[in-house]
Design a protein around this nucleic acid. Sequence first.
DNA 1: CCTACGCTTTCCACATCGGAAAGTGAGGTT
DNA 2: AACCTCACTTTCCGATGTGGAAAGCGTAGG
Lengths: 101, 101
Amino acid sequence: MIAAPTFDPVIHAPGRLQICAILSSVDEAEFAMIREAIKVSDSVLSKHLKQLEDAGYIAPRKAPIDGRQRTWVSLTAAGRKAFAAHVAELTRLAALVPAQA
Amino acid sequence: MIAAPTFDPVIHAPGRLQICAILSSVDEAEFAMIREAIKVSDSVLSKHLKQLEDAGYIAPRKAPIDGRQRTWVSLTAAGRKAFAAHVAELTRLAALVPAQA
DNA sequence: CCTACGCTTTCCACATCGGAAAGTGAGGTT
DNA sequence: AACCTCACTTTCCGATGTGGAAAGCGTAGG
């Protein structure tokens, strides 16, 4: 039988899942780059990042580039762990899939 | 870089994702069994199943058991395919996860 | 000092979700 | 036949989440 998965709603939302996926692969990503990657407005991305930050999953780093300040974000250890756990949960579901065409 | 995942919202919702996962592993499941597995009320399950059915992902089969009518549901070919595609998408994300503790 | 840029916050509209409760249809009961 | 029960289904309803526009804020440059 299927054990009830323990989805983390902070991570499960499509937008944030994508953000986590991106961050898990690049270590550090720039605000604008993420915004274009997931195709949302500034405000929406900012809110998503805030939720992830409030959950302790990401850490922002403000670094000036070319004089102007840019925001870089990266997964924290907790964020990596949470994302990995979530993915593991999904993978567990995936494992249930019988052979497909 | 990360290609924008094409999440199917019908499948991505936690409740329905669980339903699909269950169905993918057991071929056919009874209404009450699913309801208990995902711990939702009759109405909620009924609505989820309707959405999946409207999407063509599942097919209900009404069969009387012990005199009373019970509803069994199973994934359609399209449902299997859509779920497999979704899982593949998730697996792709999973593959991005670097080695974890 | 004023403007521009890069986010952040504040609205706001809209969709979704979950549950309670009422409704429906097929079987039994009397 | 009238009635009841069971097994969903549908209809409300409130709560929550999402997304965008627009205004706000701090820093840097003119």
